[in-house]
Every structure is written in C-alpha cells, then in structure tokens.
C-alpha cells in the first residue's frame, strides 16, 4: 500500500464526500474499497514498491518449477518449444559487470536472464501471468521460490538460497544485465529527437541503387498459397472460386498457412499426406487426434501446433486430405 493510499484510507469517508461533491460528473463511478484495491493492485516496481513481504527457497522453487513450469519451459528453463529459453547465455563475468556481453556480440538467441535488468520484472510477471494456462494461481511463497530457482539455474544465487523481500535488493545487484538498459533516446517523448536523419532529395539523388536483399527462393512458399490471399478482381477476370467446403474450412482455419495442397510449406503438402498414408488402417482417427493435439515427428522436427477445430471439423478435414483434397 502506498503512503498516500493509507492516508486516503484514514479519511476515506470525508474525502469521498469531498470528491463526489467536486466531481464534474456527479453520480458517475464510486469510491474503490481498500479490499478491491488490494485485490487488483498487484504490480511490483523496480524500487520494489508493491512487493508483498514473504520468502521462498531454491529447493521449494525447484518443486514448483518441475510441477508447474517445466512442461513448457523445460527442466532447466532451456526449452525453445513454446517460447524463447528463460535460462542460459550469462556468465560470471556478466554478473560482475552487470552487462551481458553476448548481447553485443552474439546472434539471435536471447534468453530472459540475458535481458533481465530489473528483478522486480521477473517477480511481477511470474506472479501475474504464469503458469501461462493458470495465471495468478501461485502463492506469494511459490513466486519467491520459483524466481529463486530461475536465478539459481543462472548461477546468480546459490542452491541453498532463500529469496525474500528483505534480500531481493541485494540480488538486484547481481543481475547479469542490470546495467544493460538505457533511456537516452527520442522515442519516449512525442517531441523527442529522432536518431536517423534522411533528406527528401527529389532528383538524381546520389544513390547507386544497391539491391541488398531479396526473398530467398526457399522462402517463396513459406506463407502458403499467396493466390488465395489476394482479391481476385482488378486483375484476371476469372469468376471467383465456388470451392470445396473443406478447402474453405482449411483456409478459414489457416491450415493453408502451413500446408499447400501440392506444395510443401512449413508442414507437408496435403497430397504428400494422402500418398504417405494411403490404405493405412486407423489412420483417419490418428490424424484427427494429431490435428487437434498438434505434434511433430512424422515429417520432421518442426511441430504442428494444436489446431483450434472441433472433432467434426477435424474429421471432415482429414477425410478430405486423405481423399486427395478434391
């Protein structure tokens, strides 16, 4: 609770009356009760305003992690399945300097711990949003504990550590990227200074036009059949397609973003699927399940995400695919 807020509480009735009386909009809205504010005011700032008192150990955090987090983020926070890895890429030297070196030199891989500059951010986010499919279900102790565990996976705190509201400021001083951010730029203030200055040259501009990059051949089909992503008029005067209802369904459900009828995209071409499983017993039921649950392994390591289709839709689509997508 803020100091201001406690003050407000003490004279709640009085102020409420005053506010109502002064309001330009009498009768609109009502005072928030202390219990309501406490229920929703869960944010934790970098100066730890809003952090509830409490503590949690690395050991307890490991239990929480393995029960509630590892399925998505991997046992060591290393998984790339549902999101970028949480742990990895930081060194003892980074902890000393407060700047993660590989952010300057490294490639694409950037883990949470590499980027994290304020420990409050991790606490607040896990508390408000994780586990992803059951947000706001952790107790305060569980949040402290699982945050401690993540820090331990990154060698920022030892295995016997107990993170608490009393020592969290010390942990902040060990965050590998604590000195890694800046607010010196012109993109906060609407009147801020842009950092790139182009000039509006109109003719014979001194450009020796250089073609620096084009879409590589292999990526041409990465976004599925582009013909069905454009309006049909304004060009070829062909009447539009009264297409098969299953094709329309496959487009509506964006299956075609990853599958061409006869072209491989992120997933196999539907014709390939039909050819591979022709005549196999029980294949329809297996594929219906696969479409609903997602998964990988039949065509490679790239997984198909679970598809948002009803049983009936999945069955209709799979029957159509197995029939050669007529």
């Amino acid at each position: 609770m803020t100091r201001i807020f406690r003050l407000a509480l003490a004279v709640l009735g009085l102020l409420a009356c005053a506010a109502q009386a002064q309001s330009k909009f009498p009768g609109v809205g009502r005072p928030a009760t202390p219990a309501e504010i406490a229920a929703w005011d869960i944010d934790v700032r970098p100066d730890f305003k809003g952090l509830p008192p409490g503590s949690g150990s690395v050991a307890k955090g490991q239990e929480v992690w393995e029960a509630k987090c590892a399925s998505c983020h991997g046992t060591f926070g290393e998984s790339n399945e549902v999101f970028q890895p949480i742990v990895g890429g930081t060194t003892a030297e980074d902890i000393r300097t407060g700047r993660v070196k590989s952010l300057a030199t490294g490639g694409e891989a950037r883990t949470t711990l590499m980027k994290l500059s304020t420990i409050s951010t991790l606490w607040d986010y896990v508390n408000r949003a994780m586990p992803w499919n059951a947000p706001k279900s952790l107790t305060t102790e569980e949040v402290y504990a699982v945050v401690a565990y993540i820090l331990n996976l990154g060698d920022i705190v030892p295995g016997d550590f107990v993170l608490s509201d009393r020592n969290i400021a010390d942990v902040q001083k060990r965050l590998p990227n604590r000195n890694g951010t800046s607010r010196r730029h012109g993109l906060w203030d609407v009147k801020g200074q842009p950092d790139v200055k182009n000039v509006a040259c109109m003719s014979n501009c001194a450009t020796d036009v250089k073609m620096a990059s084009a879409l590589p051949e292999y990526a041409r089909d990465s976004h599925g059949d582009l013909t069905v992503q454009q309006r049909r008029i304004g060009a070829a005067a062909a009447p539009p397609a009264p297409q098969s209802p299953q094709l329309a369904l496959a487009q509506g459900k964006t299956c075609t973003a990853c599958h061409g009828i006869d072209k491989r995209a992120l997933g196999p071409a539907f014709h390939e699927v039909a050819a591979k499983y022709r005549g196999q017993a029980g294949i329809e039921a297996r594929l219906v399940e696969k479409v609903k649950q997602g998964g990988s392994g039949s065509w490679g390591a790239v997984p198909m995400p679970p598809q948002d289709v009803s049983d009936a839709e999945a069955r209709s689509l799979v029957q159509w695919i197995l029939a050669g997508s007529p």
Partner: peptide, 13 residues
C-alpha cells in the same frame, strides 16, 4: 537492442 548490446527501454513512439 542496440549494436553495443544496450537495450533502449521505453521507446514507444
């Protein structure tokens, strides 16, 4: 993320 590895925070516009 800038070339020197510093991340510009609160770049909203």
């Amino acid at each position: 993320l800038m070339p020197d590895g510093v991340a510009r925070q609160y770049s909203s516009i």
